[in-house]
Structures are given as structure tokens and as C-alpha cells.
Design a binder for these strands. Structure first.
Lengths: 197, 197
DNA sequence: AACTAAAACAACACTATGTTCATTATTTTT
DNA sequence: AAAAATAATGAACATAGTGTTGTTTTAGTT
């Protein structure tokens, strides 16, 4: 069994590249980052970059993949909780906590005008599970309604995430999770603590 | 007064560029479109491109700006309806209809994994108006709650839009508008026609 | 110590970029 | 209809980035 991926040199190199990458991304959009520039800042040879990645977008994908794997690992015990209804607030809180832990990457991919496809992937991870549950709970809802509902709430959660990041993560993960739950379940109605119409 | 922008030649050139651009975008992501390639497909000289745009992203911005102006013009009578509560369903339907009319651009910017910043701009257009209204309607809601609510529902609507596009625009604008309204107002609760818990 | 693999280094052909300038074609003004 | 203005073309240019290859140096593994 090769140990190539665990080579100390490789880990160091990849860490240097990742650090340079996220640093540059704070100041300019990904489309104007050149490999040459990245390597100069990371202080590695350009050939070394090609040893690990094909281009800038491959680099982004691989970094995202790493975080995605981390998320899956963190959520594994929850997913395996079986058919007993899991504590959704706990689940959501864990998700948001995990995202907060990876703030350096998320601040780029989720930030104001960043690319949201990664966030969509994260949310989509729970898609099948949710659709199934909703289908059981709301028997009169058509599959189409459930699909559109999921499309709405998953994107809505991303919007919530972005605002959270834009505000500097000052709200606690638990609070955000609670807000997400309320918004998904009751929509605007959750503001209606005092109004009857 | 110069009439440069109304020059027939300019309009033809820009139309050629736009057509080539949206055509290419259907097959490959924007980051791998080169100016050279675009000009070859548009059958214009590369220098001519630089006469109107600085780069590919400037081109995208200008095209988006055009549609945005069109939307504003379409919504103008609605916005000017004054303090009388406008018919929200009508407003929403009009918005979705307008988007459908510009499907060729939207299918790219709103499509599955496209860039959502443009859609955010569209939605943000109504932001101030909404925040004001919600503030009046829900006096016990904190400004923070309203901000997060808006972040949630605006992104949610974009998700709805994307699903709409991915499904090939088979649902009518009025149906989508109704769904958006229900989801914003009641969240998951709108599926609860038959369930009491 | 010997072996293995990563990283650095240098060189290469190739493509795209952005700019310029003279020329041609088209529109607008007079 | 002629003259003036401006858009588009085409060619040339320096510059920069890309992707690849082969060799040498360095660090890790056995």
C-alpha cells in the first residue's frame, strides 16, 4: 500500500497552496487568479501545482470536497439514527457549528457574492432524507409540492448562512438553527407572535 | 448630442456578441470562455470586442444590467402604486412573467449551478420596500429577525426560480407566484392541509 | 545505506491578452 | 450628394499565462 498521500512534503505543499488560495480569494474573484501568481504567493514551484491540481477550479473543488467529507463524517451518527425522528434542532445546530469551524473556506464560497453551488451540494446532501420524511408526514402534498418546497427552503437556508457570514458570525449556531427551523416550518408566520389577522 | 449608442452598426455588433455569448454558455462555464473564441463564433473582429467590453465578465455585467433595467421599467407602475397595499400576487406574477420573457439569459444565470449574484440583485431590488412593510405589519419583530427573514425568503425564491427553470418552465408564472407566496407566509405549514399535530 | 518519491528548476511550444494604428465601411451632417 | 464622423476590420506587437517535459536536488521510507 502506497503512503503517497500521507507524505509529509505533500501535506505541507497542499497546505501552502490552500492558504495562499484562500488569502488571495479575499481580495479578488476566483476568475482572476492565475496559477503563476498563486504559486508565487505560496512559494512553491509552478510544476508542483500541476502535480496536484489541473487548474484553479480543480483546486477549489478538491478543497470543497475535503470539507464535504468532514461534514459527512460529522453527520454520520445523526444519519444512522434510524427511523426514530432525530432531534432536528440538534442536527441543524451541528451543521451550522461545522460550517463555522470551516469559516475560512465558507467565508469565500458562501460570502456575499460567492459561488453557491457548493452550498447547494451541502444542502442537497440531506435532500433525499427530507423528501422521504415530508412525504410521510404530509400525505396530501403532491411530490411536486414537496420538490418545490425543498427547493425553496434549501436555498433559503443558504441565504440565511450568507447573512450569518456577512454579519461576522456574531449570532450563535443554535440561534441560527432555531431561526432556520422556524422559517422553514412557519415562514413569515413565525414573526406573528403578536398579530392576528 | 452624440448618437453613438444608437448606431445601427453598434447594435448589430452587440447583438452578435450577445448571441454568441449565450450560445457558448449553454455548453461550457463562463470561466473557460475566451474572448478569441467568442469573437470567432460571433464573427466579429477581436478589436471590436474591446471597443465595447473590457472582458468576458464585463460583457456579462452589461447584459445583466440591460435586463435589470427592463425589469425596473416593468415594475415601475407597481412601485409607484403608493402606500395602498399592492396586490402581491399580481406583483409576483408579473416578476415571474418578466423573467420567463428573458429566459435566454436567465437560463444561464439562474440555471442549476449558475451564478446567483444577479438573481440576488433582482430580489434585493424589492428589499427596502419589503423590510419597511414587514416592519409596520409585525411590530414585535426585531429588525434583526426581519433581516434574517428577508435573507431566507429572497434566497428561497431564487431556489424556486431555479427549480422552475430546471423543470423547463412548465409551471405557469401564476402558479409559481402562488407557491412563492404560500412558502413565504406559511413555510412548511402550507403543506398541512390535512394534518393537525 | 539504498531506494523511492516529491519538489524544484529550466526550457519549451502554444495560446490568449490587451493595445496600437492604418485602412475600409457605414452612418450622420451639412 | 459631398463631407465629416465614427464604427469595424486587419495586422502587428509586447506581454503574460498555460501545460508539458526532462533533469537535478531534496526529503522521506524501507
Amino acid at each position: 500500500m502506497k503512503t503517497s498521500k500521507n507524505d509529509h512534503r505533500t501535506r505541507v505543499t497542499k497546505a501552502l497552496i490552500r492558504k495562499a488560495f484562500t488569502t488571495i480569494l479575499r481580495n479578488k474573484p476566483i476568475q482572476s487568479i492565475s496559477i503563476k501568481e498563486l504559486c508565487e504567493i505560496a512559494e512553491i514551484n509552478r510544476s508542483t501545482f500541476y502535480l496536484h491540481y489541473t487548474d484553479i477550479y480543480d483546486l477549489l473543488n478538491q478543497i470543497e470536497e475535503e470539507m464535504f467529507e468532514g461534514l459527512k463524517a460529522a453527520l454520520k451518527p445523526v444519519v444512522e439514527s434510524g427511523d426514530g425522528t432525530p432531534n432536528y434542532l440538534t442536527v441543524t445546530t451541528e451543521i451550522f457549528q461545522c460550517i463555522k469551524d470551516n469559516a475560512d473556506l465558507c467565508i469565500v464560497t458562501l460570502g456575499s457574492y460567492g459561488d453557491k453551488s457548493f452550498a447547494m451540494r451541502l444542502i442537497d446532501y440531506g435532500r433525499t432524507l427530507c423528501i422521504e420524511n415530508y412525504g410521510k408526514l404530509y400525505k396530501n402534498a403532491t411530490p411536486q409540492q414537496i420538490e418545490y418546497f425543498y427547493a425553496f427552503v434549501s436555498s433559503g437556508c443558504i441565504g440565511l448562512l450568507q447573512k450569518w457570514f456577512d454579519d461576522g458570525l456574531v449570532v450563535t449556531p443554535a440561534e441560527i438553527a432555531s431561526m432556520a427551523e422556524n422559517l422553514m416550518l412557519y415562514g413569515l408566520g413565525f414573526l406573528e407572535k403578536d398579530k392576528r389577522q
